[in-house]
């Protein structure tokens, strides 16, 4: 009895844990990699894992896709998460495009898309500005 409950619990929650693994892989790319394009790819992976989590909440076992078949006994999965995520995907690509556009502009003014080089450049610029202010005084 106890064992049966454990198996059911494991099988019923395993998908959530797998989503968390995917989410954390995306998160790791965002935190640990300095390349801005790769950060965007990491964010997309994170985002896709969140989408999967939402969709899995709406799933009912034995149900079918929420398109009316005419059979009155048919069980449908919950359509609400589908609607939310469908629009979220398109909004996601629009914001991704905005991020990519920012990357292109950053590359034009810094000549690099690596985070540490951009910071280095900013620090040097700051030192130069300070020295110039010192001279002016």
């Amino acid at each position: 009895m106890e064992g049966g409950f454990e198996t059911g619990f494991l099988l019923g929650h395993m998908n959530y844990w797998l989503f968390v693994i995917l989410m954390m892989t995306g998160f790791y790319i965002v935190v640990a990699r300095g390349n801005l394009l790769k950060k965007i790819v990491g964010l997309n992976i994170f985002q896709a894992a969140v989408f999967m989590l939402y969709i899995s909440v709406g799933k009912i076992s034995g149900a079918t896709a929420p398109i009316i078949t005419g059979n009155p006994d048919e069980v449908y999965s919950n359509p609400l998460p589908h609607v939310l995520i469908l629009t979220a995907i398109v909004v996601g690509i629009a914001t991704t495009a905005l991020g990519l556009a920012l990357i292109v502009r950053i590359n034009e003014s810094y000549g690099t898309i690596e985070e540490d080089e951009i910071q280095q450049h900013d620090l040097e610029q700051y030192d130069k500005d300070c020295a110039r202010a010192e001279e002016a005084r």
Binding site: A65, I67, L86, T87, I89, V90, I93
Partner: peptide, 12 residues
């Protein structure tokens, strides 16, 4: 209206 699809997918 009848199957999977709609404005978002069609636009893309």
């Amino acid at each position: 209206d009848y199957g999977p699809g709609g404005g978002f997918q069609a636009g893309v």
